[in-house]
Design a protein around this nucleic acid. Structure first.
Length: 392
RNA sequence: GGGCAGAUACCCAAGUGGCCAACGGGGGCGGACUGUAAAUCCGCUGACUUACGUCUUCGAUGGUUCGAAUCCAUCUCUGCCCA
């Protein structure tokens, strides 16, 4: 493949971007003819990277494919504070152990998207943790309170009478310092990172470095179609989720949300005239193909059709467990535990049963006290998404 | 440092001595309908219990009372105004 011209690269890199500061700067940097250092910071605040992160990761991959270097910053230090972006309240701090563990899983997940050959993975605890108080004061002198209050989420919390802690104001400064330390040519991030990334430009300039180009990507809405996709809201599709889970979650989103996701995920318009359900299946398939493999995608779709369209639980791929005869409540609790590692209270189980969700061998069992006999085996349906095959 | 207001379940919020495991809304879960969509309708939404009921819960601790989310004291935290 012939190396694309700077102009061609620019056109490609602009696709799907929410903001680019600035186009001219990026073009100028592309014309330097050397690999650019493209920074993306992620805070290991949870064990999972999700589809929301994948937009920036995919853009980073695009840079890599054009010959540039990905600088993936694991926010070992920043996550001790937590970016207040998009949050209406203070984030609870994580322990160092949690962060370490999460950082480890992040690498693995990020490499589902990134090219391992052109990436530097660094941890900002390595430099932020060494700053002296004097250093910190010096950095802070570069930023004004007014600038901070220009950030909408801070402003909103102040206006709403909610606390904003001073340490939260440090977050943009730390992120900016990262840019200086890795000598970033470009920084990627979600739209809500725009402010932080721009502080990076200021700080780099103050340190005598050419300011980075900032390229932001749209924020992906979560499964609920209302809030930003995030682990803490439990409205996400994890990059390392099993194909079936991924496909199923994709199928559960509203048609409207799917239509909004489509261009963000695929950089193309949704097929006009396609039945929404078909389109959604295609979406699910493409996601599974992207993060697992085309074969997994096809299998996930077939399994889904079998299980949910044709409601053929009997031939579906279910966890196989052994269960002792028990009353229905006890059996449901045991099946959740053995089949899915999920702890259900007996109250929860009873509610499911009384709600008519539980079926044994295709027959609804609505009486929590009914005794179930598992000799001979069969399928025990627990709720929409959970069913187990009981061994004979 | 001073004054005022506030802290209720996942979120918002009602409740100012017993009828409170705590109104209502949101969210979530389940059912009907369906395309694991939307809309609509119904049920559930602290734990244990077949049930009667028992236990834990209304910022924390201690108290008053036969009885407290509700009253008193102290403490912790938050917002606003003043300095």
């Amino acid at each position: 493949m012939p190396a694309p011209s700077p102009e061609e690269s620019l056109a490609l890199l602009q696709k799907g971007a929410a903001a680019l500061v600035s186009k001219e700067d990026l073009l100028a940097k592309l014309r330097l003819g050397r690999p650019l250092r493209v920074k993306l910071g992620v805070d290991p605040t949870s064990p999972d990277l999700h589809l929301g992160h994948s937009l920036a990761l995919a853009k980073l991959r695009q840079f890599q494919d054009l010959g540039h270097t990905a600088v993936l910053i694991i926010g070992g230090f920043t996550s001790l504070i937590g970016d207040p972006s998009g949050r209406s309240s203070t984030r609870p701090p994580l322990t160092r152990e949690q962060i370490e563990a999460n950082a480890e899983t992040y690498r693995a997940q990020a490499f589902r998207v990134l090219d391992p050959a052109r990436v530097e993975v660094v941890n900002n605890a390595d430099w932020l943790g060494r700053l002296t108080f004097e250093d910190v004061i010096r950095l802070n002198s570069r930023v004004t309170l007014q600038q901070m209050l220009a950030r909408e989420d801070f402003r909103a919390r102040v206006d709403a009478g909610q606390p904003v802690r001073l340490h939260e104001l440090q977050y943009p400064v730390m992120q900016a310092w990262d840019s200086v330390m890795v000598r970033a040519d470009v920084e990627l991030g979600g739209s809500d990172q725009l402010f932080n990334c721009l502080v990076g430009r200021d700080l780099q300039a103050a340190e005598g470095q050419p300011p980075q180009v900032v390229l932001t990507l749209p924020i992906l809405e979560g499964l609920d179609g209302v809030k930003k996709m995030s682990k803490s809201l439990d409205n996400y599709i994890g990059l390392s989720e099993a194909p079936g889970e991924m496909f199923g979650k994709a199928m559960s989103v509203s048609d409207d949300l799917m239509a909004r996701w489509w261009p963000l995920l695929f950089h193309e318009e949704i097929l006009p005239g396609a039945h929404p359900m078909e389109a959604k299946k295609t979406l699910g398939e493409r996601l599974v193909a992207r993060f697992h493999s085309p074969a997994d995608a096809q299998a996930a779709r077939e399994e889904w059709d079998r299980r949910f369209s044709r409601r053929d639980l009997e031939s579906s791929d279910l966890p196989e467990i052994s269960l002792a005869d028990a009353d229905t409540v006890g059996a449901v609790v045991a099946a959740f535990a053995a089949g899915f590692g999920v702890t259900k209270s007996r109250g929860d189980a009873r509610r499911l049963i009384e709600g008519g969700s539980v079926q044994w061998r295709g027959e609804k069992v609505a009486d929590p006290k009914a005794a179930l006999h598992f000799a001979g085996g069969g399928v025990l349906r627990l709720d929409k998404r959970h069913a187990v095959r009981v061994k004979a």
